[in-house]
Design a protein around this nucleic acid. Structure first.
Lengths: 350, 350
DNA sequence: ATGAAAGCGCTAACAG
DNA sequence: CTGTTAGCGCTTTCAT
């Protein structure tokens, strides 16, 4: 391993001169700097981060803590952040919680002890108190989900508006018996989305509690089950709103498996615009989320905070609006269509 | 920040005693150990990783270097590895290269200087020589793509076989004019897949070089362009094989945009089984890749190597086979179908 | 069984 | 402009 000392010896100068030259210290002559950088490159010098960190400088690591990277939603975020941070010389570490608060705690512990420069987190429903405590030891920001105890620095989507748009679209089309399959309302996002759903329903809408199905937002399986349940009702909904990416996936799979066709048999509005949603049946009408932009602004802001070292706990909130993307999976409700009850609902596949 | 010294002062012992007690050194009496650990907990002592690293102990960080995390292929890998490593107390850092060798070099430099415990890499086509040199400074393993200079430790897919299966399926169905859209053959994966394509073609197959389109495997746009080109040929192919996930995406999009319908107008075989591929048209016949299993075994092996500290450069190669998933996008070639030439090829959308 | 002391590589005073 | 020196917190000889 090439150290600053080796370079110094080779150039017959003192280690500090080399150190300063490498740090582009204004007190060092251009000639010396040039020589030093030259030799450094030639010898393949790589600064030892550990030593640097011991001098109090926090590492260049930023922890990204999220439920599951396989979710296109989150991998988009990871990509955007990675790009942002790289520009600032920061490295991203990836920690998956699987929405388990103990796993989350474990990761935060690791990150703090690794002296990370900051943490970007999509918190679980109920973070452990130690998680909250430790987060305060480092600059941090919440993404997508927001938990009051963790702090007031948050970048997210207007969840209520997103599902409102989705639901309202169906209402405008004349649907009244609308099913909603979404994340549990213990999750801030789950609660906000559910609220958007209710807000959009007109007084006339028949809202049996059976039409609202809540479960794990990260589970496509839950989406399938919930869809199956809705379809099996004596009076199944004429339209379904999905409240998370994974749930949308599950719902779509179930509909396809049962041979239920959109928009003829049922109207569907999804959440997020994953690859393939446009390919599903006649094209899925869905809520488009500005995930990439959101993550980018979060990244830029965070880098700024870290660089300025002015990580005051001044609240900062950024809410991005979602936009409805209308494709073929929704259409006006036709009261006359008798075939929308019980067994006949199922298509040829059943 | 509580240090070993603080504890020592509090207990009226020397720092080294505390250090040893914490390290469970056999030379320390049980009583002292007990007291030390007690006080350490009480004071909230957390070992300083930086200082430890300076003593040569490598960090608990493992670098994952890949082209683009948004690719479902790679996010699946990241997830599997993250899970593996977490079990071993290791943290994963994410570095995206965007298939740019200089970016790759930059990342490797960072990782080495961060004293990572190891590096798992999907190398770019032609890694920089410094990248290769630095990789040798740390335990490492190649995933998916394999570059001879980097080493003999590799976990990948049998690319040749994968595309062979895909192509052969079409050949068996009677197709003779088959188009291939794949990654550049400078990439080991690109070359292997192209080889599989050629291997599967019978002597009778008309292979105009125009039928083989090579480009950036990570670019859906390239896939679109290539597909557009193939469709515009005077004698367009009766079937297309796609040679990467992104390319598959692009090809599918273009076919859909032009209103070309599979399997009636053309047969298509994709690469990988992304979410949504099953939803495309009649369901995409595609090559299923055991990505998750592959990454898991890679992770397990790597953890083992790191733990054993026996990172001998003993070659280790693991090749996983791909399996063809037949859905609706392919069907026997029917010679009589006249409408498969020039303008009439395009459907209603054109 | 415990202490003292010497670094690991780097940076930041403090001197020239 | 450059050199000297003194640590950062920990481990690890070498002494007691």
């Amino acid at each position: 391993m090439v150290t600053i000392k080796d370079i110094a010896a080779r150039l017959q100068v003192s280690p500090s001169t080399v150190g300063r030259a490498l740090a582009d210290d204004p007190r060092i002559s251009g000639a010396t700097k040039k020589k030093v950088t030259e030799v450094a490159n030639e010898m393949g010098y790589v600064a030892n981060l550990a030593a640097r960190m011991m001098r109090g400088i926090s590492s260049n690591l930023v922890g990204l803590v999220l439920p599951d990277i396989r979710n296109g939603f989150y991998s988009t975020i990871a990509h955007a952040l990675s790009t942002c941070l790289q520009g600032a010389g920061l490295q991203l570490t990836l920690s998956e919680t699987e929405d388990d608060r103990m796993v989350e705690l474990h990761h935060i512990r690791e990150l703090i002890s690794a002296n990370v420069a900051g943490i970007i987190i999509v918190p679980t429903a109920k973070p452990h108190r130690d998680t909250v405590r430790m987060l305060k030891m480092s600059p941090h920001v919440q993404l997508i989900r927001r938990h009051a105890a963790i702090g007031d620095q948050w970048f997210g989507i207007d969840d209520t508006q997103a599902i409102y748009e989705a639901t309202n679209h169906l209402v405008q089309l004349g649907h009244r018996r609308i099913g909603y399959v979404g994340g549990i309302d213990e999750l801030p996002t789950g609660a906000a989305r559910l609220q958007g759903f209710h807000k959009a329903l007109p007084r006339g809408a028949k809202l049996g509690s059976a039409l609202v199905q809540l479960g794990a937002p990260g589970s496509a399986d839950f989406g399938r089950e919930a869809a199956r349940h809705l379809l099996s009702l004596a009076a199944p909904p004429t339209a379904i709103v999905a409240g998370s990416v994974q749930i949308t996936q599950g719902v779509l799979e179930e509909l396809m498996a049962q041979g239920v066709r959109a928009p003829d048999d049922i109207s569907v509005v999804g959440f997020g615009d994953e690859l393939g949603f446009r390919w599903w049946g006649p094209g899925l009408t869905t809520v488009g989320l500005p995930v990439s932009d959101l993550a980018t602004s979060c990244g830029l802001w965070f880098v700024h905070q870290i660089k300025q070292n002015s990580f005051t706990s001044a609240p900062y909130t950024s809410i991005s609006p979602a936009t409805l993307i209308v494709r073929g999976s929704t259409r006006p409700f036709v009261a006359a269509s008798k075939e929308r009850a019980g067994a006949p609902l199922r298509g040829a596949a059943a």
